[in-house]
């Protein structure tokens, strides 16, 4: 193969890898439609943790979050939805929202509660966390592209 042909073949190869990456990120994900429901989720906030630490709801659910602080004042700020609530010890704070953004979101304590306060974190998953699988596909593709790029 001449150097020009080799160069053209490589350029085509990289274009194909790029197209595959775009496909992985943009391809529609199979959604399993479930009827939205009203969900009440009770989360206890205590020394540097939420219980339960992970919460899953379906896309479109109308979610009522109940935060109960069992020791000191705790807050809960939900990334992605930009919602915050604060609970006094022994009391319950509530907020309701529609889970209309799919993915996994962290919720974190928003009121200083002790030394590990910045790391008091929980996790809400809405529907399927398809971004994780897309990212995993992208990482696998990156490994394949690297080996392909160095083939002898």
């Amino acid at each position: 193969m001449t150097p020009a042909a080799l160069s053209r073949s490589r350029a085509l190869g990289w274009a194909a890898w790029l197209a595959a990456a775009i496909l992985i990120l943009a391809l529609p994900w199979p959604a399993f439609a479930r009827t939205p429901a009203d969900r009440v989720i009770r989360v206890e906030g205590r020394r540097f943790e939420y219980a339960p630490g992970t919460v899953a709801v379906n896309m479109g659910d109308r979610v009522t979050l109940e935060l109960v602080a069992t020791d000191v004042v705790h807050g809960l700020h939900l990334d992605g939805y930009n919602l915050t609530l604060t609970a006094e010890p022994g009391q319950t704070a509530r907020l309701t929202f529609v889970a209309d953004r799919p993915g996994t979101f962290r919720f974190r304590c928003s009121t200083t509660c002790g030394p590990l306060h910045p790391f008091m974190i929980g996790q809400l998953t809405v529907g399927t966390n398809d971004f994780f699988w897309r990212a995993a596909g992208l990482i696998g593709l990156a490994a394949l592209a690297a080996v392909w790029g160095l083939r002898r």
């Binding site: 020394r47 540097f48 939420y50 219980a51 630490g53 790391f119 929980g122």
Partner: peptide
């Protein structure tokens, strides 16, 4: 630090 496991942080 970023996981939801309070027992591990403690």
């Amino acid at each position: 630090f970023l996981g939801p496991w309070g027992w591990l942080k403690t």
